[in-house]
């Protein structure tokens, strides 16, 4: 049922839960008996720096290496507008971008005079869609959805839900619920499944 080959890049800020996002994507692929390879940013950048996750899914033979090459990602899941734009070189021409539009202000930007509020980045992403560089752009009000869910920690799963919808893969919902079962602590499972549903209906 799935695309035989899918390269996904997950971009965000250390602490936003990008690692779990790539793990869920990989676990779902595993459940679907696909080959998968991921690479995560673990280390210093996790303290509020730019982080990238790579997920490479194949129908049969796995990709040889874990990093998505530039211009190769079919899907870019962004947790924050500047990080989405920063990771855009990974997206293939006409690929899909699913991104939260609420900015996370770096301390250096708050300190300086060049304010960063994400609006220029969102406008840029829209123009990329207009120009065909991005095939499909889905802006997610992650903040509002998280507020509705009562937790700021589920932005990752909300975005995965939105990405499934953007790829017309709603049917994969059960697979992802299963992935949540195997990767999320029992007391947070219900919340995460709800987040998945919210993301899919956003």
């Amino acid at each position: 049922m799935s695309t035989p080959s899918l390269d996904i890049v997950v971009a965000g800020v250390g602490g936003q839960g990008t690692v779990l996002a790539s793990k869920l994507l990989a676990q779902a692929a595993l459940i679907e008996s696909l080959s998968v390879r991921t690479a995560e940013t673990i280390g210093m950048a996790q303290r509020g720096g730019s982080v990238l996750g790579h997920v490479r899914i194949r129908a049969d033979l796995p990709a040889a290496s874990p990093l998505v090459p530039l211009n190769a990602a079919d899907l870019l899941i962004g947790f924050e507008p500047a990080e989405t734009v920063r990771a855009l070189p990974y997206l293939r021409e006409g690929g899909t971008v699913v991104t939260a539009h609420k900015p996370v202000e770096p301390v250096s930007a708050t300190l300086g005079d060049a304010a960063y509020d994400g609006t220029a980045e969102v406008a840029y992403l829209r123009s990329c869609e207009g120009a065909g560089r991005i095939g499909r752009l889905v802006l997610v009000d992650g903040d509002a959805l998280c507020e509705k869910l009562g937790s700021t920690k589920v932005l990752n799963v909300v975005l995965i839900g939105a990405a499934l919808k953007a790829q017309n893969r709603e049917s994969a919902r059960e697979t992802y619920e299963q992935a949540i079962e195997s990767l999320v602590k029992p007391r947070f499972r219900a919340l995460n499944k709800q987040a998945l549903a919210e993301g899919m209906s956003a």
Binding site: R47, G48, S50, A109, Y124, A131
Partner: peptide, 21 residues
Amino acid sequence: AAGESRSQEPQPQLPARPPVL
């Protein structure tokens, strides 16, 4: 992308994001 990129806005200057405490 050949031809199409002209309607794209210039990319905004992105904020640096080094790790912090």
